[in-house]
Simulated assay, not measured.
Amino acid sequence: MSEAASSTYKVRFDENNQEFSIIGSMRPQYVEELDSCIRLMETSIAKVKGTVYVNVKRLVRLNNLAFHVLANLLVKACAERPDLKISVITSSVVGWSTRKFSALREISPNIVIEQYDSAFYPGQTFLEEGGFIPVLRTQTKMTWQHEKAILPQHGMREGLTIADICCGIGDFAVLLHKEFQPARLVALDHSKSSLAYARKVAADFGIQGIEYIYGDASEMLLDEGQFDFVTCRHSLQVFDRPELILRELYRICKPGGRVYITNEKNSHCLGEPRAESIQWTYNEVAKLWAHFNMDIELGPKSRRYMTEAGFEDIRIESFMVTNLDGDPQNFADIIQSWEDVYAGQMSVQRGDSAEFNEKFRRGFQDHIFAALHPKGYAGWPVWVASGRKPQ
């Protein structure tokens, strides 16, 4: 790994991945201020065979002088080496970068622009549908009565600086704000529609003090080591590379602070009566998610992921959300929404047969039957894990 830095930006080259990264704000007044960056980029490109990746996902500012220097260097490299391919990796979070660097495609056919997060969030479109929002709120309402008691056992208390990453529609952040009165609360998500809804809910409830931020959880534009407590709920299971999210959660957490995550193991959903049909359907749910590079079985794997991310004092437990946690119809509504998304969208997109889908749907309906049966029991398990960032 080779690096160079100024007071406002860092550049580094990872030879194993052939990736040159620029992080921070690059706004020089004179070309000479970029000398160390230029030298590192030139020597890095000289070592590369095939494709070199230029990662600007966390380049938050770039003036015209710096852009022209970088652009000329990349175009020149392609002209001198026709065998060389350059892939510029941008992010939708820094919207201008895709537009600006796309101009290079017209100059050199060997330069391509890839918007990284368009492929990184394979399940996001399934979970952003407007009709799913009321169900997400119901889910949080039912899990909160468990988590409210569990959170203090994992280090939550009043007056902390908190980040809620992948905050979704923001209802959990609102509950944290009301219950634990943080000194600061940042809520970040990659969905603009979810954040818009979250801001509306906070305004409707008259809540001030939650900072809503649009951002990529795997490449956050947040300074490192600034939060006492970082939460990320039901989200690692949605991403095809959860270790990248955990790396960022670790980075923004203060030394001695804690990161708190929740995830599921859907194949452990249960119900009586009609247990066999229910079990079959949720085993198939796990396979369906895996088809879309998501892991709804991640819950019990949390300890391994947190250990590999470098956390210590890892605490893990599970709780069961059931039809007895208040109104059984709330539980039934959650299951109906799962059927609508999993059987109505994901299974169809995978190309499953009508016969499969009929049996698939029957398991969800049997779960609802168990939830609403006067003698029935229905459950949905959630795993909680937290780890401390070493001092």
Rank of each mutant, 00 (worst) to 15 (best):
F132W: 03
F331G: 05
F20N: 05
S386A: 09
R315Q: 15
N323Y: 10
K148R: 13
G170A: 08
L244T: 09
D295S: 06
G363W: 12
Y9K: 04
S318T: 12
D366L: 08
A343T: 06
P381E: 05
K76L: 06
F364S: 02
I133L: 12
V238A: 02
G310R: 03
I169T: 15
N330L: 14
L288A: 05
F172N: 01
P328Y: 10
G257Q: 02
A275K: 15
H373K: 12
R12C: 03
V54A: 06
R362Q: 15
A198R: 12
R27M: 14
N263A: 11
V31H: 07
D313S: 11
K141H: 07
Q153H: 05
N17F: 11
C232V: 00
I335R: 02
G363Q: 08
L288T: 07
H190V: 14
F132P: 01
F67R: 05
L176Q: 01
V230T: 08
W383F: 13
Q29P: 01
S2D: 14
Q336N: 15
T281V: 08
R61M: 10
F205R: 15
A119Y: 15
P28H: 11
Y250A: 05
T140S: 01
T143W: 07
G131M: 00
K148D: 06
L185V: 00
P255N: 10
Q124G: 09
I162D: 02
